[in-house]
Computed example of a mutant assay.
Amino acid sequence: MGYYLADGIYLQWATFVKTIPCPQGKKNKHFAEAQEAYRKDVERAFGVLQARFAIVRGPARPWDLQTLTDIMKACVILHNMIIEDERDDGGEQNIDYEQIDKIPLSQVSLERTPDIMEFIQQHRRIRDRETHSRLQSDLVEHLWQIYSQS
């Protein structure tokens, strides 16, 4: 299960790694500084992608991890290609980016399918506060090991 770097307003869910308010000790202070710096970098980069690609602004829950990975990689690649093209291109091109093929509607089932039950179980695991605490503690130790070896 992946996680997001978050600030203090988020709940203590397994998918959010928050900073430590008023950190005590070198390990916790180092973690808080690193978490806040990485979070700001990610927010900046993600904001650029959200401004450019509507798919990044939408909800992510319906997709599985591989699909999300593919979407984000595609957006990063496209963004880099656009930036590179804008640097190289002295002239203007008229390209219609709003050309969208019609997507057929899918049937919705109201039955309890294995996919729905798996989604509910995963949602319960995400909301586990103990997993949140373990993840934060493990990351504090991991960052401290990297920091102390350098």
Rank of each mutant, 00 (worst) to 15 (best):
I83A: 11
V42G: 01
F53L: 02
Y3L: 07
M81V: 14
D138C: 14
P62L: 05
W63H: 07
E86A: 12
Q145L: 09
G2A: 15
D70L: 06
L110A: 10
D70W: 04
A60Y: 04
D41T: 06
I71D: 02
R44S: 12
L49D: 01
I116M: 04
S148T: 08
V42A: 01
I120Q: 10
D115V: 10
A45P: 02
R112D: 15
V56M: 15
I120Y: 09
E84A: 09
S150L: 13
D138V: 13
Y147R: 05
R112Q: 14
E36F: 04
T131M: 02
L110Q: 09
R134Y: 08
Q50W: 06
D41S: 06
R127L: 05
Q107G: 09
Q107R: 12
A14I: 02
G8F: 08
L11S: 01
R52Q: 08
T131R: 02
Q122A: 14
Y3W: 08
T131Q: 02
R52M: 06
C75R: 01
Y97L: 05
R124E: 13
Q24S: 04
S106A: 10
Q99E: 15
P21E: 08
K73C: 15
G47N: 07
F46G: 01
E130Y: 12
K102L: 10
K18P: 04
E92W: 11
P21Y: 07
K18L: 08
I95C: 01
L143V: 04
A6N: 03
Y4E: 15
A54E: 10
F119W: 03
T15Y: 05
G47K: 05
G25K: 10
S133T: 09
A37W: 08
G25H: 12
F16M: 12
C22M: 10
D88Y: 01
E36S: 09
R129T: 02
M81E: 14
E98P: 01
D85A: 06
E43L: 08
W63K: 06
V42P: 00
Q50F: 06
D115L: 11
G91I: 12
V42F: 01
I100W: 13
T69K: 12
D70P: 00
Y4M: 13
D7L: 08
A32G: 04
L68P: 02
L105F: 09
L105T: 10
F53Q: 00
T15N: 09
I103T: 14
Y147L: 03
K40P: 00
V17P: 13
N28F: 00
D115T: 09
R125T: 05
F46R: 03
W63I: 05
Q35F: 01
E33H: 12
L135V: 03
E98M: 03
R52N: 06
A74F: 14
N94I: 11
E36W: 04
R127S: 04
W13V: 04
E130L: 14
W13K: 07
G90C: 11
Q66D: 14
Q121V: 14
P59H: 08
Q35N: 00
G91N: 14
Q122R: 15
